[in-house]
Design a protein around this nucleic acid. Sequence first.
DNA 1: CGTTGCCCATAACCTGTGTTAACAGGCTCG
DNA 2: CGAGCCTGTTAACACAGGTTATGGGCAACG
Lengths: 259, 259
Amino acid sequence: MSDRHSLSALMILKLGSLFTLSDEETQALHDLPIQAIDLKSNRDIVRIGDSSLQCFLILEGYASSYKLTPDGQRQIMALHIPGDIPDLQSLYLKRMDCSIASLSPCTVGFFQVEELRRVCARHPRIAAAFWRDTLVDASILREWVVNVGRRDAYTRIAHLLCEFLVRLEAVGLVQGGTFDFPITQANLADATGISAVHMSRALKALRDNGLIQTRRRYLSVPDWQKLQEAGEFDPLYLHLEDNVAAGLLRTSQLETAAL
Amino acid sequence: MSDRHSLSALMILKLGSLFTLSDEETQALHDLPIQAIDLKSNRDIVRIGDSSLQCFLILEGYASSYKLTPDGQRQIMALHIPGDIPDLQSLYLKRMDCSIASLSPCTVGFFQVEELRRVCARHPRIAAAFWRDTLVDASILREWVVNVGRRDAYTRIAHLLCEFLVRLEAVGLVQGGTFDFPITQANLADATGISAVHMSRALKALRDNGLIQTRRRYLSVPDWQKLQEAGEFDPLYLHLEDNVAAGLLRTSQLETAAL
DNA sequence: CGTTGCCCATAACCTGTGTTAACAGGCTCG
DNA sequence: CGAGCCTGTTAACACAGGTTATGGGCAACG
């Protein structure tokens, strides 16, 4: 039971960053029955074509939405972090149009789509918050089209890392510019539409230019300002609440000050 | 008044293809006050950063969502056809994260976001239909990421054309495999993330292979089956209602029979 | 404590696509 | 009716990034 509390806390944090929730609404989310499951890395959670009656919330670890082309190439079109509900679309779409897999060891919490629909019907503002969440996901996808369509590999990767950092920061998973980063170069390549070999080259360039540091399974950003410039990054499209955006700015100042 | 009827008819057709609406719900949509405006080609309708109090419905012509990179490159991340509400996201996002411009002479109908919110509050199933619509748009964006990230220019263009044809067909704008196509090669290039010159080369290849025919401002698809194969096209991601999908299949058979 | 299997790095070579430029056809507009 | 302008075509050349191959580090496991 206390488990439950901490499980949904993350989702509430996320939704709260998009939309201010009342106590009653918060309670309604707390009361959603949820079943937590642990997963190894690289496991499909849902598959393209599935029509599932459940949704899941990421509690720990990272996941990705992806598709395969007929010749076996893979494209990742979304990265998911703790607090995300990657298949929230199942609320209104019958079949999954992509697969979702863990990118690292993960804990995910499953709940019934039916239950979620009920909560949405009873609490229109929660429905609005979820809707808003899916709209932000769509906005991120628009930026990804730009990223993959018009930026060169170096810029593209810098942009991806900027976005990842900001999103992690919003759920409190960045400490002093450093965050957990167990994602392989092959996966990063699939997310940016380049080859794994070239990902290796480009990451080396980013390292050599002092934009990122990779130690073990962690990634650090020593100069947030410079990485943003390298990635042509403007967080507008993340539609953060003003207070969150302000927090980001503050953090970035702290970081640069810490140098 | 009779004007109004025909204006919203298109939107109702579109929503109806996503979700079955009751008479009362249909009426509520009819009653939405809407202001029609004519536009020339290549005019911005909304701009990135705007926080608008209105949404618009495309009544005639095509439009695109796009962003510019700092060095002046353009990426189109969505094509909009009659029946679409390209900035429906304004319902819950404060600022536009992309610009939207006409791709051809257009008629668009503006309505107040506030009015729309009221209709959604009063008619939960309409809200659901709109939500579903935005979810389908997100699904299309996912496919675009795959398209731009992992397919070569030839396949990519074929895929884009397949999608365009299917979406037009769903609102009755295709006759015998032929549809209005006033979109310049430069715009197509921006939508697929390639250069205008290479777009010209690739379109020539598609023509030479008999996959498309371009006459004046129209485009024909003489062999729907072959174009689908060339574009690795699977309409699953468009989340069409079964009856619409069946209609498509029928049409495609008629077409091939007509040859 | 060797084996197996990732993951990453690097080199050599190849190719799809970008770039630049020049030209032709068709619109629009004075 | 000619001047511009936009659109599309084609050619020659350049280069970012793909492909293939090899080797090294390291964790998991028997």
